[in-house]
Write a protein that binds this DNA or RNA. Structure first.
Lengths: 194, 194
DNA sequence: CCCTATCTATAACT
DNA sequence: AGTTATAGATAGGG
């Protein structure tokens, strides 16, 4: 709660704070490399986009990425004024939605003949694979079928707002994220319909 | 066409090629700073998440981010085996979908009473402006959900605008989507239903 | 749309 | 969940 998380991920470094010289365009001396013989972690590792076998690990990934996806949806929505809806069926069949899915679905159904099936003629093989990596004509109805994306952005703006409000004009001297709402508060933007 | 888009953004740099020393964990000398007095670009700049006014710019962002969103969706789906569907109504009313939306919607509707409104009772004023920028002094952190609900309204507002346009009430006198605005290839993972 | 320089999202740890 | 080092996404510019 006292954490100043501009980028929320690197509060200690905050590269954003580094003032950017408008027209100078000179390569920075790359700060100062903290020479440490023992990194605390290996940092983000590259992974292959394939099903994660370990249950636990998969769950973590699902949480993190779902959250990230929603955030992206929100940003896209706000930035471009697009209307988005997202629905996700987790493996266990739980439904996570973001935004007024119902409304969007309604609009969708009204605009598109329900019978229209882009992938019509394709057998639904609950097979493993990346339908999204295949030619359109052969996309089987399996992997992903649910994503009605949805809405909103605000997490960030809201946070800033709250901060400003709760401190009037001295927002600068206060943590960017006054409330511990940010990161991993489970369900403010999602609804598990189970 | 799968590997091609691995990183596909920095083919020339490919930081991934840098072999990672498994257990060494020693801070790298940070390569070699190419001292150049004139950077070719300022690189990615931080932007505020708020509506982009410039039509052209907004469309570019829409293309790029929509693409990114779909990609993320695909990854999440593959990685966790979750079923996902995404539908996006662009401002101009164009529909972009990802995944087997129809199938998903069907499942969704079967699982959730269509009448169920998660945000029921939270009638937010459909006024112009940035509702998410409203004062938040009265918002206790425990009620962030209220905001989430409010956020959804954004979509509704946008939807209204879209409707207006549909009715011939032009908001912008610009063509929906310049043909060459389509992201780098109307790949199989997106379908414009318009 | 291709490129870069940056900003962000996260995998692996703790 | 909270960190840290990176992989990955993208705002701008060409």
């Amino acid at each position: 709660m006292e954490e100043v998380r501009e980028t929320s991920l690197v509060p200690f470094l905050t590269p954003n704070d580094r003032l950017q010289k408008p027209n100078v365009l000179v390569t920075q001396p790359k700060k100062e490399i903290t020479t440490r013989t023992t990194k605390t972690t290996r940092g983000r590792q590259k992974i292959e986009i394939k099903e994660i076998k370990e249950e636990s690990k998969r769950q973590v990934t699902f949480s993190k990425r779902r959250r990230g996806l929603f955030k992206k949806s929100a940003e896209l929505s706000v930035l471009t004024g697009a209307k988005i809806a997202v629905i996700t069926f987790s493996r266990c069949g739980r439904i996570y939605r973001f935004g007024h899915v119902d409304t969007l679905i309604d609009k969708y159904l009204r605009k598109t003949p329900v019978t229209l099936d882009v992938y019509a003629g394709h057998d639904v093989a609950e097979e493993e694979g990346s339908w999204w990596e295949r030619p359109v004509e052969s996309v089987p109805e399996e992997e992903l079928e649910e994503y009605v994306a949805a809405m909103s952005v605000l997490r960030d703006n809201l946070g800033k707002r709250i901060n400003e409000m709760s401190n009037g004009r001295m927002l600068e001297s206060l943590p960017a994220w006054p409330i511990n709402m940010m990161p991993w508060k489970p369900t403010m933007d999602m609804q598990s319909l189970d």
